[in-house]
């Protein structure tokens, strides 16, 4: 069996990649994917924990996260679509209509 530590390392790597991708990429879709990667990194960590210590709660949480992520994807993509329709772009540096 693969020791859980490896899973954690993989999770950290994935999460960091997600962060880096989020800050380096400029279009909403890619950033969105980066967020998904981060979420799944967290999922991985939870599952590793569940597998190693028979911790059922962690698995439940994973289910929650998957559901939330699905909902988020649906709404998020819809929003991106609408933004594109309106502004003809999804580059984040052009989107600051919420400026105070």
């Amino acid at each position: 069996m693969i020791p859980p530590g490896y899973f954690f390392i993989l999770s950290v790597v994935l999460f960091s990649l997600g962060i880096i991708a989020f800050f380096l990429k400029r279009d909403l879709i890619t950033q969105f994917m980066a967020i998904e990667i981060m979420l799944n990194a967290a999922n991985l960590a939870f599952l590793a924990l569940a597998g190693s210590s028979n911790f059922l709660d962690a698995q439940v949480i994973v289910f929650f996260i998957i559901t939330v992520a699905a909902a988020e994807a649906a709404i998020g993509l819809a929003i991106v679509l609408l933004i594109f329709r309106k502004k003809k772009t999804i580059k984040t540096e052009t989107l600051n209509s919420m400026k105070g």
Partner: peptide, 18 residues
């Protein structure tokens, strides 16, 4: 005065968040 902090760019918020 405080609204200067609110730039409207998602990345700025994410950075503060991070």
């Amino acid at each position: 005065a405080l609204s200067v902090l609110q730039t409207g760019f998602v990345k700025d918020y994410a950075l503060v968040f991070l």
